[in-house]
């Protein structure tokens, strides 16, 4: 017996687990490790130019022949050249964030890619289905980084009822219980970000990983609500400073200037006091750094136990 879903066939992967395409964090090393372990590793293009991302793609292809993905941040100043790169490289799976990939879907699919946008609402999920995307990722506000309003628990079943393509749940999932819960809601798989930051293969600074290991339940706070682009990151000097400015009614440009380049400072330089340590609410659950393969193996085993034992016990 092995836990498998329709997502495995769709993306040609063994386990219904996707690693989020986090900017700066999701490098070729991490994506390759997740893909080699039977999940779907994703390179995060973030705000990087095409030549930088090309190197990450080459890294993955050198390390594994399994399918992998590329996340395109549509608001990036380099979005256009990343889109062209994705098409030339025939990336197996393309996920998109921060915008509507509408006009590019057909070109991606013509290049042989599966297209899986991240959607924050039922209406957008329905529009994406109409564009014939292959699946959608539904990400709740529990997630790290840029977030929407609704929780995973509330949004996932509503989207599942509204569309008939596979739905991947994200936000607040880091262990087998979370995977089992998502599948119970009707999801075809999960995407996890924060859990994979604490993978041995993740190249983020040790300080960044340690901050997540040390985080407790209430530490992943939201900054930037007043700017219209809220971000979830671990409470530190930076988040407190932004919170103060927001309370004082400071104008958006000033707050955005303060936040610019802060993720890079945290991930690359390990500045976890003045940097933006983007992480989800589930950070408090993560207690160890493990190889990606072990994270995935544990997740599947634990989910199978939960589904087999707990669910049956509830009925007795």
């Amino acid at each position: 017996m092995a836990l498998k879903t329709e997502l495995c066939d769709l993306l040609n992967i063994e386990k219904p687990i996707i690693q989020g395409g986090m900017a700066w964090v999701a490098t070729g090393e991490l994506a390759a490790a997740v893909s080699a372990a039977g999940g779907l590793g994703i390179i995060g293009a973030g705000n990087a130019p095409a030549d930088v991302i090309k190197k990450e793609i080459d890294k993955v292809r050198k390390l594994t022949d399994k399918p992998f993905g590329l996340n395109i941040m549509l608001l990036s100043p380099f979005a256009e050249e990343i889109i062209e790169l994705a098409i030339t490289e025939k990336i197996p799976v393309i996920t998109t964030g921060a915008g509507n990939p509408g006009k590019h879907v057909k070109r991606f699919q013509a290049a042989g890619s599966k297209v899986v946008p991240v959607v924050p609402s039922v209406a957008l999920a329905r529009r994406m289905e109409r564009l014939k995307v292959d699946a959608v990722i539904v990400e709740g506000t529990e997630a790290g980084g840029h977030i929407g309003e609704l929780t995973t628990m509330a949004l996932v079943p509503q989207v599942i009822d509204a569309i008939s393509i596979p739905v991947i749940a994200a936000g607040g999932i880091a262990d087998g219980r979370g995977l089992a819960a998502a599948l119970t809601l009707g999801a075809a798989g999960v995407q996890m970000g924060t859990r994979f930051v604490c993978a041995a293969e993740c190249t983020a600074a040790e300080e960044f990983k340690t901050a997540i290991l040390k985080a407790r339940d209430r530490d992943a706070v939201v900054t930037g609500r007043s700017t219209g682009h809220p971000v979830r990151n671990l409470k530190n000097t930076l988040t407190k400073r932004i919170a103060k400015l927001e309370q004082a009614g400071t104008a958006t440009p000033e707050i955005e200037e303060l936040a610019t380049g802060r993720l890079r400072a945290a991930v690359i330089e390990g500045d976890v006091t003045e940097g933006s340590v983007m992480a989800g609410q589930i950070a408090g659950l993560i207690a160890d750094i493990l190889p990606a393969a072990e994270i995935i193996e544990n997740l599947i085993q634990d989910a199978e136990i939960v589904i087999k034992n707990n669910c049956n016990n509830l009925l007795n």
Partner: peptide, 23 residues
């Protein structure tokens, strides 16, 4: 907000029985 506008466009589609592409 931008998500409200998506819902609004879909409401127009439903009311007038048309399909409005993203572009």
């Amino acid at each position: 907000d931008s998500l409200d506008v998506v819902e609004l466009v879909m409401a127009f589609e439903e009311e007038f029985d048309v399909e409005i592409p993203d572009e």
